[in-house]
Write a protein that binds this DNA or RNA. Structure first.
Lengths: 150, 150
DNA sequence: TATTTGTCTACTTTTTTTATCGTGTATAGA
DNA sequence: TCTATACACGATAAAAAAAGTAGACAAATA
């Protein structure tokens, strides 16, 4: 399950992407984004800060200030977002590249049967999720139901 | 990330499967499983109880009592285990079949752009994980490193 | 019947998630 | 230059989930 925070982050990015697609895009205030994303303003503030520190959005202060998208939607990967907001996406810490952590009780990673099977799952999962970007979310259309109720 | 509890559960099942594969299998006491799985005994107790209630293992009480595998390893699916121990595996509650929950603020699921993209991911993920069973974990061999460090 | 081993309910602790608050800083415009 | 507006950032708090513990009880067998 992705966290509520991640949902807020994605909704915020969608709002910013929609704004960026307009003919004369403005910076959106946190308040405006919060309204569009149905997110608590003060919580969203932190999320947007993280997105800014990661170089995904940019912000300006003062009267006409607000947030806007820095990267193009096609350059914002979903897996990058997941890692940023929700932390490592590997099913086991010992399978994570960026947040690798050895299991305490593990004697030999190479022969660990749990690691082995989840490595296979994870590898395929990565192939899918690494290829998805915010741009893939922008094209609307009710594909969800086709997929889930074939 | 799978939980520690899930790791304990899988290790316990591996221990039981290994025992079942012997020429004269015995029931394993919680204590014995705890030792093999490096799990706190009193915690493992709860886990084993859940596995028993789910019909995956069976138990006998008294002097020669203990736990043993009820289903065959090839009939114990990893996704079933994940759902049992860690809860729903869908990335969004509104994508879960067994633990479906509508998102509060969602106006239309069919056009929700977040739901759409995660539905695609989830569908493919399900295909992989639904096909895996405990039997796939039993065959050891260092495949993990080949997969992760090609 | 005494000892061993599982059963069950309740509780505690720790960590993570989900926020909220206060104060500070930059900026545009009157 | 003053002031209203908006982001910045650290601290704190409440709620939920994960992880672990404890005690009393029930069944089985030697």
């Amino acid at each position: 399950m992705i966290t509520q925070k991640m949902k807020y982050a994605l909704k915020a990015l969608l709002a910013l992407a929609d704004e960026a697609a307009r003919s004369t895009p403005d910076a959106l205030t946190i308040e405006a984004i919060a309204k569009r994303a149905d997110a608590p303003k003060r919580f969203l503030e932190h999320i947007l800060l993280e997105l800014r520190n990661a170089g995904i959005v940019t912000s300006t202060r003062g009267r006409t200030g607000g947030y806007s998208l820095l990267k193009r939607p096609s350059d914002i990967s979903i897996s990058e977002m997941l890692r940023l907001i929700d932390g490592p996406i590997a099913p086991l810490a010992c399978l994570s590249r960026r947040a690798y952590q050895r299991c305490e009780d593990c004697t030999d990673e190479a022969t660990c049967r749990i690691r082995k099977v989840f490595a296979e799952v994870f590898y395929t999962y990565l192939l899918i999720i690494d290829s998805l970007t915010l741009a893939d979310m922008l094209q609307s259309g009710a594909v969800a139901d086709q997929v889930m109720n074939p």
